[in-house]
Simulated scan of single mutants.
Amino acid sequence: MSAAQDIAAVLRRTRMPSGSEASLQIAIGEALGHAGIDHEREKRLGPADRIDFLCAGGVGIEAKVKYPKRAIYRQLERYAAHDEVTALIIVTATAIGMPAQLNCKPVFYVSIGRASL
């Protein structure tokens, strides 16, 4: 298993709020901390790009509660263009189909609804 797969598995087992992006980000940060996963919050990747979390090894995590699918895809596509990002995890309440890779980097989908079941 890769680091990104391990992190996605931790997040999938975590019950997360869907009320606001701020509360979702807090829950993600707590889950990462409890699992002992080194991470940096609100990591600036470039002048216009700031990802919600960048974990050790370059695993980026983006949290979205209610957001247009196309906008989520475009944002992840921009993040995947950065060299320091090695994999992406999208944590969202939005049902979205994601490709297995963006810019040759693996993408993992974590459904907030699924984790709450």
Rank of each mutant, 00 (worst) to 15 (best):
A87F: 06
V85D: 01
K64V: 10
A71T: 15
H34C: 13
A93H: 01
F108N: 04
G36T: 04
E77L: 14
G19C: 06
I7D: 03
I7M: 05
G58Q: 09
G57N: 08
H39P: 03
M98C: 12
I72P: 02
A3S: 14
V91D: 01
I37V: 15
Q25V: 11
G113Y: 09
R12P: 01
M16Q: 01
S2C: 15
E40R: 14
A27C: 00
I89K: 00
P17G: 06
D49Y: 05
A56F: 07
Q5N: 12
R114F: 13
C104A: 14
L54I: 11
A100S: 14
S111Q: 10
I51K: 00
G33K: 15
S23F: 08
A3F: 13
R50E: 07
A71G: 07
L54C: 07
K64F: 02
T94M: 06
A56P: 02
L11N: 00
R70N: 13
T14D: 02
R50A: 10
Q75T: 05
A27H: 05
Q101W: 10
A35Q: 07
E62R: 04
K43H: 15
T86P: 03
T92D: 06
E77N: 12
T14A: 04
A22L: 14
A31Y: 12
V91A: 04
A3M: 15
P99Q: 05
A87M: 01
G33P: 06
